[in-house]
Design a protein around this nucleic acid. Structure first.
Lengths: 211, 211
DNA sequence: GTCTATACGATGATAGAC
DNA sequence: GTCTATCATCGTATAGAC
């Protein structure tokens, strides 16, 4: 065993490469080379390339989801104690802010967030499912909270709006501070914190848009 | 020459397969098999797989962008004649509505819209650039219109909001009516028209969110 | 000009011997 | 755990038939 064991090194490299080049464009040869591991070690430790992806996502998403779940739960119980419905803005923040904090917690986390941001619109069924199966419970929990917060909005419409929010988020998470529209006569990209603050304002306004 | 010529058949099949399985997951062998063409014909007609993608995108995006450009221009000149700034909602509609109409114009167009929806968050640099280079001018034109419509919003923030809008749109375009969160105890997906109407309301509200 | 058949070199994931 | 072999498949190039 070296400083970090083979399995962890593979996970770290996979996270980075899957995020930056995409799952299918990442070859196990390059990956194991970068991770200073043998080509066959991926199969040994994880079983297959897809199982590696699953492991990469699980490693970070399960803890993150626990935090998000707890925060959302706090908002809901706090509101119930005060015998009022939870505020939609609070619920959104409880979901988004931990994601952002997590994202800034380590370099690998940033890659990871980009990875899951993309997973939502992944063409490949299996890859998308790999992410969705782990993410659905927290989406559902957030949705239930929002139902209480905004009972005047029909459930189907609220769900659609939640999807819009996920679209916005996943796009921002993918791009990071890299502005896709960057051109000479375009304004400079916003500072990261400001961008995230603006995103929250954007999705809050959209969520509560007039019917 | 058969009913449709080889080049068109290849374009049609590529559009469908790139959209549904992704660019890298689509092999030229399966593609040419489906298009009832020879493996080498892609290289003969287009030069390479990437050039084929470029051709697929150009074929539909150039005409669509012309329509969008014209509509946006109409809104702007109309506003100028009445010596008032254009309305942000009108500009957004001028951009979004032709996209939706186009999307419903043919089955292939639906695949195409999904394809470009995904292109915005494509990990592969070359694929993303292939789309962005064709889409940037119309983004920029829309941005200029929005600048006039909402002069009170700082340019950098407005640009960020335009990015959020593109994120929402691309997500919806990718998914189509397929609800990613579909689960037993979730509400039914909205009808297509209602979904699009809701999307417009969402992005309009987000765009004009309080600073 | 179009299309076909076939070959090439590279790379894919995986499995079995060590 | 590693090394190496294996075999499928990839995108592309080319030579020649219609």
């Amino acid at each position: 065993m070296t400083q970090t064991d083979t399995k962890t090194r593979i996970l770290d490299c996979a996270e980075q490469m899957f995020a930056r080049a995409g799952f299918h464009s990442t070859s196990l040869r390059k990956l194991t080379q970068l991770a200073d591991a043998n080509l066959a070690s991926v199969n040994y430790h994880f079983g297959s390339k897809e199982a590696l992806l699953q492991a990469v996502i699980e490693r970070r998403l399960l803890p993150l989801n626990k935090i998000r779940h707890k925060k959302i739960e706090e908002i809901i119980t706090q509101a119930r104690e005060q015998e009022r419905p939870p505020a939609a803005a609070d619920l959104l923040q409880a979901f988004v802010v931990p994601t952002l904090e997590f994202r800034n917690s380590s370099p690998g986390a940033q890659d990871f967030i980009a990875l899951i941001g993309r997973s939502l619109s992944e063409p490949d069924e299996t890859v998308r499912h790999c992410f969705l199966s782990l993410a659905l419970p927290i989406f559902q929990f957030l949705f239930e909270g929002l139902r209480q917060a905004l009972p005047q909005i029909p459930a189907a419409i609220l769900l659609a709006r939640l999807q819009f929010i996920m679209g916005t988020m996943s796009h921002v998470m993918c791009m990071g501070n890299l502005n896709a529209f960057q051109k000479p006569d375009f304004p400079e990209a916003l500072e990261q914190n400001v961008l995230m603050d603006q995103m929250l304002k954007f999705i809050q306004a959209g969520l509560e848009a007039p019917l």
